[in-house]
Write a protein that binds this DNA or RNA. Structure first.
Lengths: 195, 195
DNA sequence: CCTTTCTCTGACCGATCGGTCAGGATCTGA
DNA sequence: TCAGATCCTGACCGATCGGTCAGAGAAAGG
């Protein structure tokens, strides 16, 4: 009586991840997943309550890590919160880039679902933290570009090993975020400078 | 006999843009668009050959500008190509951020369609140009994050006026891109592949 | 007036979606 | 051997999708 759902459960999950990564969540039908596994669509729905449950189980890992990150950040402010948010998000993106990639830009609509409502709030707090102590509009734009860029771009980073991707993304984050208000010595770019 | 399609054509187009911006391309049905206009679904299909034609007409502007940018870049190399690519893409994003936003992360699937195949190629060349003369993996990661971040993030920039958004994005681009490998500037991190 | 052209509608089509259901295998434990 | 739980299937459901079609209604021109 120990064997709950022998091997098909995991197989279906893996197949769903593969399909989602290729055609996106909405673009993948239960039929597609069933075909990938080599079983019937009804079998998929025997192991999982529905398509949404499939996604929820796939995203359980990154979501729990994201929640932990949110709690860590909520205890901080200013530059400390900014640094932890950036590093934490990079770590999360590197570790779960496969899972994040399979959402393929469907964040807005998926986040609109009540099941993922808290993710929406967390990402907003993440943006706020990444905006940093400067707090200006430029800093907020930078934070948004960084967050969206990492989230959307990490689908293209599948072939880069973790130990190379992490420092690369950290370097980008360090460069892009407005770390403070003080005037940096470097001139800001504009169209009219020497060629 | 002059009046081709009086005003409904433009009305339908505007309504489609509004709906696409809210629920995405795939997430918007012709019924939704018809409801927004206040006509029947058949009327929408009377003015437009199909849903795809609707999108194509909406994206005609940004696509033509993107093609121009591609041609301009193809005549350049190295740092010059990088600068033109970054500035050109920022300009494009600022100017057409409404149109870009209504794709809502559906780039991958839409680009997979044969009708948008050349866009795929152009974006790859854009990445290559933005990677810059350094050419290392870190530079490529930075370029990807920037491109994806601007494309995905500009949907959140609707309330920022052009004259504020452009310099903000240019500043981000200048910071994030690995500008060069030459001697004077700051050392690139962990990058032992030059001779 | 009638005819033609343009604009638009409601009904309808086939396909596909997520999901349900009755029941057939297959296995387990007594 | 039989009973019951587990695993899975094919058939089916209602909803919705993009798209078609015959024809109604209005406008224009003779």
């Amino acid at each position: 009586m120990i064997r709950r759902t022998p091997r098909t459960h995991g197989e279906i999950l893996a197949a769903a991840a593969r399909r989602f990564a290729v055609t996106g969540y909405k673009g993948t039908s239960l039929q597609d997943i069933a075909r990938e596994v080599g079983c019937s669509k009804a079998a998929v729905l025997y192991h999982f309550a529905g398509k949404e449950a499939l996604l929820a189980e796939l995203m359980a890992g990154p979501i729990s890590v994201l929640c932990e990150l949110d709690e860590r950040i909520s205890a901080l402010t200013g530059a400390a919160a900014q640094r932890v948010a950036a590093e934490g998000f990079v770590d999360l993106a590197v570790r779960f880039r496969g899972e994040i990639a399979l959402l393929r830009g469907e964040f807005p609509e998926l986040l609109a679902q009540p099941a993922f409502a808290h993710i929406q709030r967390i990402s907003e707090r993440l943006i706020e933290a990444m905006t940093g102590p400067d707090g200006g509009q430029d800093a907020r734009v930078a934070a948004l570009v960084l967050l969206a860029g990492i989230a959307e771009g990490c689908g293209a980073f599948a072939d880069i090993p973790d130990e190379e991707l992490r420092p690369a993304l950290l370097a980008v984050a360090q460069r892009v975020l407005v770390t403070a208000a003080p005037p940096p010595p470097r001139p800001t770019l504009d169209h009219q400078h020497q060629d």
